[in-house]
Computed example of a mutant assay.
Amino acid sequence: MTPSRLVPLLEQFDFACRRLTDRMAGPVMDSGDGTETSVSPLTDEEYLWEPVPGACWSVRRRAEGPGPRATRLDGTGEWGRDAAPYPHPSPPPLTTLAWRLSHLAEMLFLRADHTAGTHSLTRDDYAVAGGATEAVAAFATGAAAWRDALLGTDEAALDEVGRCTYPHGSDAEEPFVDIVWWVNQEVLHHGAEIALLRDLYRVRQR
């Protein structure tokens, strides 16, 4: 049985993921008041669009090298995501829709592995999607993996410090319920950023 404290967090996660997926894939999305609004599927051009040309962190072909103020491309395969060691550049670079969506998908997939999987995967093991269709599918895969990991959680596990061994956060020092909450706010706030970038792309030439 799902712990009572986890139920509203799961419901929030499901809602946030569904709303973000609908916002990217269409053909309709919930406008926020329960009515359906038409939305065009995300294209490769929009996925890689740089609102400020020459100043954004994004997803790039590995052969092209990292973007402005980035020192490496995280991930494996033909594509990678702009990154730099801590402390990050200040002020922080503007990130593209591709960067934000890749970050979300990777975080969900790796945290699932470090909760209920091998506890070994790193960013170097994660294949970064170079196109919109693949990126939306990768987000869905990551979300499903994280949700499956949560379903194996009982009341005692929610209070367990270090239940998740994800190496790119404070997971080792936090009760698991706090990590669940944190993942939700990551989906919510990056989902809102992606929605804004879609709006800006749609009206950019008006």
Rank of each mutant, 00 (worst) to 15 (best):
M1P: 14
M1R: 14
P3F: 09
R5T: 02
L6G: 00
E11Y: 13
E11S: 10
E11T: 08
Q12V: 11
F15S: 15
F15E: 12
A16Q: 13
C17T: 11
R19H: 14
L20Y: 10
L20M: 11
D22Q: 15
R23E: 13
A25G: 10
P27R: 04
P27E: 02
V28S: 06
S31R: 11
S31Y: 04
G32C: 07
T37E: 14
S38H: 07
S38A: 11
V39Q: 01
E45W: 09
E45D: 14
Y47M: 07
W49A: 13
E50W: 00
E50I: 01
P51F: 10
P51M: 05
V52T: 12
V52E: 14
P53G: 03
S58C: 04
R61Y: 10
E64P: 00
P66I: 02
P68T: 09
A70S: 05
R72M: 15
D74V: 12
D74W: 11
T76V: 05
E78C: 08
R81F: 06
P85Y: 01
Y86W: 15
Y86N: 11
H88D: 05
H88P: 04
H88I: 04
P91C: 09
P92Y: 03
P92G: 04
L94D: 12
T95R: 09
T96Y: 15
L97D: 13
A98E: 09
R100M: 15
L101H: 12
H103T: 01
L104D: 01
M107R: 13
L110C: 01
R111C: 03
D113R: 00
A116Q: 04
G117W: 00
T118L: 04
T122S: 15
R123W: 00
R123C: 06
A127Q: 10
A127H: 13
V128T: 06
V128W: 01
V128N: 05
V136Q: 06
A138I: 12
F139D: 07
T141W: 14
G142Q: 03
A144Y: 08
A145T: 04
A149P: 01
L150E: 04
T153K: 08
V161G: 02
R163M: 07
T165G: 03
Y166M: 00
P167W: 00
G169M: 07
G169H: 09
D171V: 00
E173C: 03
E173Y: 06
P175Y: 05
F176V: 01
V177I: 13
V177H: 04
D178T: 12
I179G: 03
V180N: 06
V180Y: 02
V183Y: 01
V183I: 08
N184E: 07
Q185M: 15
E186S: 05
E186W: 10
V187N: 05
L188G: 14
H189S: 15
G191H: 12
I194T: 06
L196W: 12
L197Q: 10
D199M: 06
Y201W: 07
Y201L: 01
R202M: 08
R206S: 15
R206H: 15
